[in-house]
Amino acid sequence: MTQLALVIDLNVCVGCHACVTSCKQWNTSGAAGPMFDDNPYGADPTGTFFNRVQTYEVGEFPCTETIHFPKSCLHCEDAPCVPVCPTGASYKRKEDGIVLVNYDKCIGCKYCSWACPYGAREFDEKQKVMKKCTLCVDRIYDMSIPEDRRKPACVISCPTSARLFGDVHDPESEVSIAIRENGGYPLMPEWGTKPANHYLPRRKTKLRIHEDELVRADNPLKKEDIRHEVSKDATLDDWLM
């Protein structure tokens, strides 16, 4: 079975919101659109976005770190938003595991948004139906797009390549390897929803240098130990001796 998903590397994301804007652009012009904007140029703008980059501060000042946290529907393997829907508008596709909403069936009761513990569902106040990330289902299978660009809009637009896309059920896929090798984790695993999207944690890049690496133990001439006296008015020639 295939389960398509995103893997987001928090160590790489710089919080530029390129994924947010490209997501909105692609989806507002596609099958899921138009996506409602309320008061976009006013003091308190809001609207329907499938992908949002939240910002968190971890630690106590001055020892803080900023974490940019892109979040969209996680395409849960055991999606709690699906069984609660009274109309069957919410469904999970068997063939690729994408969770979708049928906009022609949805009655806009919003029950599913109570059932999604991740707050990923986005009600469209204009069309009065529930929407959410479709994993760009109208893009990833589009044969008129070159094959290497048949990926969700956010993945293509990310300037730092923080977003990976693929089948998390295929152990040899890029996303599975990334999860395996970089400690990828799901959000709120305590609820058993089994989110398909994973996150790669922040990593401290530290260079650990051992004594042996500075001084070659098996160097017969002990060349590294040779130090030259340097006079006050040393020239460059002195250094090159």
Binding site: H17, V20, T21, K24, D37, P40, D44, P45, T46, G47, T48, F49, R52, V53, Q54, T55, Y56, E57, V58, G59, E60, T66, I67, F69, K71, K110, S113, G119, R121, E122, F123, E125, Y185, P186, L187, Y199, P201, R202
Partner: peptide, 21 residues
């Protein structure tokens, strides 16, 4: 968010503030 630290604060809700919910 999967970050193990005693002190985590949300600073921004994302693009254009909150959603309807």
């Amino acid at each position: 968010i999967g970050v193990r630290h005693n002190k985590v604060q949300q600073r921004a809700m994302g693009m254009m503030g909150g959603s309807y919910n």
